[in-house]
């Protein structure tokens, strides 16, 4: 049985213009309790790779440039 791709709209949004991951910053990736953020190999910016969010906000609170916004997951809104 092959695995399907099921799209979801992710709660954590990163402003690429503000994100400084390409300079080596990994703060949001480091602090996420559920480990759902990664740095994109294509863009060099942080993004939400896994839709497994507790909307707890360390990523947003600790981001040094204010690039990260945590929204409430759509199913809960």
């Amino acid at each position: 049985m092959p695995l399907a791709f099921s799209p979801t709209t992710v709660p954590v949004v990163v402003d690429d213009a503000k994100c400084i991951a390409e300079k080596g910053c990994t703060v949001c990736v480091d602090v996420c309790p559920l480990d759902v953020l990664r740095i994109s190999e294509e863009t060099g910016k942080a993004y939400m790779k896994y839709d497994e969010c507790w909307y707890c906000m360390p990523c947003e609170a600790d981001c040094p440039t204010g690039a990260v916004t945590v929204n409430i997951p759509y199913l809960l809104r």
Binding site: P33, L34, E52, W54, Y55, C56, P73, L75, L76
Partner: peptide, 13 residues
């Protein structure tokens, strides 16, 4: 109730 696996009362970790 939301059906979202991670929308738990406790920290989902």
């Amino acid at each position: 109730q939301s059906g979202y696996l991670w929308g738990t009362y406790e920290n989902a970790t």
